[in-house]
Structure formats: C-alpha cells, structure tokens
C-alpha cells in the first residue's frame, strides 16, 4: 500500500468537496475514476499538501501529508490537467529548471531533461519554446516534467486530454510503460474508462467526495452470478416494478436490455418466478460479465440510491 486516506474531509467554503473519504491504494497503477466534481483533483491537491484537510489524514509511502508535505512532494511527479508552461522557455530549459527545483544538480537536470524529452518523443522539438507546440506535444511536455526527477509516485490528471487518437495511444503506451517498468506507482485520474482500463491494474471510483468502489480491475470484472441481462416479451415496465418489489436492482444496458441484480442468496429460479408473477416471457437471458463501464455505472447508481456501499 503506497497511499492511505482516512476520513479525509476538505471543504471550500460551506461545500464539502471531500466528504469523509477513506481509501487505500496499492499495486503499480491505479485509476481514479469519477464524474465531474467527484473530488478527484481535490484529492490530488490534498495529497500534495496544497489544500488544507479539515479532518482526517493522508499518508503517502508512510509520510503524513499534514507534517511532511514537502517530503511527499519530493517523492511525487505531478502532471496537471491544465496547460503548464512558462512563455519563452524552451522545453529543455523548462525541464531543466523544474529538475533543479526538484533537487537535481544543474548537470543532472540537463541530462534528465534531454532524456525525458526523448522518452516522450519530443527529442527533435526540445529547443523550441513550449508555447509553439501543438496541444498534444504540450501534453507530452507535461508528462516529461513530471518524470524528470524520477518520482516514486506519478500522478497524472487527465493525461489524454486534447490528444488526437494517435497521440492518445502513444500517451497511454507511455503511461503503461512507466507503470510496468519504472518501479514507480502511477495514479491516473480520468473520466475515460478505456484509458484507465488500458493503463491501470486497479481502480477507485469517487462520487460526491467519497470512495464508492475500489479494487483490482480484473477481480471487479469477474463474472457476477447474481447479475443477468434479460429481454422479455410482454409488459416490461410491470416486470421491472415486480423485480424492484422483490428486492432486485434493475438498470438498462446500452443495447436496451434489462440488467437485473438479484438479492443475496437467490438464484435463477427466483427470476423465473417473478417473470411468471408479472405475466411476461423471458426471451433472452444470460449471466453478465461486467465491463469497467458497467462497474462504474453500477457503482454510481448504487451510490446515488444511497446504498453508499464500498467494496473492499
């Protein structure tokens, strides 16, 4: 476990942006998912020590953010979501400056600046002022500045923003490569689920300032024998009402099929019984293996319904 948050509350004025948030991140790469305003960026700012915690603690590699924010920042590389450059400075000079601020000697900083820019594929453009770069290349510069000092934890906030498909694929390959081969931990904030699925081992979903789901992606995606996709002939609305009355959770998938989660301890027989009571025929019926999108949507729906559950 490289990051642990316990009952973290952050407020902006009267608004609780992080509301008693608790989570533990482990493994090489973790995706932080959540709708806009879920608190992903605020959590990152809190762990960098930029936003004061009203309550709770965050520990990064065993260091408390309240007392050792400076030390934590020396272990972290941060790629912000928004543009970040100094007008007039070339990419290599910008990276050298930031490398020196991170504690590298001027010589090491220069060496690492060149190396990082080569790594992200900007070797040929490294002497040009950053403001003349395309948005995609500016994204690469942001990644390069985040890794210039060889951080133990790399935090990427929406790294594929403003990238064309080819640039996006390259960025994702770089992020995955760093996660797999560098020995650094990667935290990737995104609302693009496929990007997280491609780059990360595990995922944590935030909603309204709370962690509502956390786990290894492959384990979360395993077949859930309580969830079915069904298509019925007859009064579908009546069937859905009957399902809810019998304690089932229902939703609709992207193909328009009904998605049914049976209560704990009930099997397929129960589903047929409900269909019989509702007077509908089951025409299509199979176990549902969740995609990350399904897991995300389901977690959000359950959270909004007030279940507030959190899988360990």
């Amino acid at each position: 476990m490289f990051l642990e948050a316990e009952n973290v509350t952050v407020t902006f004025g009267r608004r609780r942006v992080l509301d008693d948030l608790s989570m533990r991140l482990q493994g090489r790469s973790t995706g932080l998912l959540g709708p806009n305003g879920a608190g992903k960026s605020t959590f990152i700012k809190a762990l960098l020590g930029f936003v004061p915690l009203r309550r709770g603690t965050i520990r990064v590699l065993g260091h408390d953010v309240r007392r050792q924010a400076m030390h934590i920042r020396s272990l972290v590389g941060y790629m912000p979501e928004h543009e970040s450059y100094i007008e007039g400075l070339s990419a290599v000079r910008l990276l050298r400056y930031l490398g020196e601020l991170s504690g590298l000697s001027p010589r090491d900083a220069m060496e690492r600046a060149h190396e990082s820019l080569h790594y992200v594929g900007l070797g040929e453009l490294r002497y040009r002022p950053v403001e003349t770069y395309s948005l995609g290349n500016q994204q690469r510069v942001k990644l390069a500045q985040a890794i210039v000092h060889g951080p133990k934890i790399l935090i990427l906030d929406e790294p594929t923003n403003a990238l064309d498909p080819e640039g996006r694929n390259e960025m994702l390959r770089l992020v995955r490569d760093i996660g797999e081969y560098s020995g650094s931990h990667v935290i990737m904030c995104s609302h693009i689920l496929r990007d997280v699925e491609y780059c990360c081992e595990s995922v944590t979903v935030l909603n309204r300032g709370r962690a509502i789901l956390s786990g290894v992606i492959e384990e979360l995606k395993k077949e859930d024998i309580r969830t079915y996709e069904v298509r019925v002939e007859g009064n579908r609305d009546g069937f859905e009402r009957e399902l809810v009355r019998h304690g089932c959770l229902t939703s609709q998938n992207t193909q328009g099929h009904l998605r049914v989660q049976l209560p704990e301890g009930y099997g397929t027989r129960y589903l047929f019984e409900i269909a019989q009571k509702a007077g509908v025929q089951l025409r299509h019926f199979h176990f549902k293996k969740d995609s990350l999108e399904d897991i995300f949507v389901s977690a959000l729906q359950e959270s909004e319904r007030g279940h507030g559950y959190a899988r360990p």
Binding site: E83, Y85, E87
Partner: peptide, 17 residues
C-alpha cells in the same frame, strides 16, 4: 507569466517552500 499559463502549479508541486 507563471500565473498566466499556470506553470506555478508544477513549480509548487516540487519540494520547495
């Protein structure tokens, strides 16, 4: 200039007071 293009965010993310 550091506020204009928000580079101050990446500067303050370094271990400097």
């Amino acid at each position: 200039p550091e506020l204009a293009h928000r580079s101050i965010a990446i500067i303050f993310s370094r271990a400097i007071p």
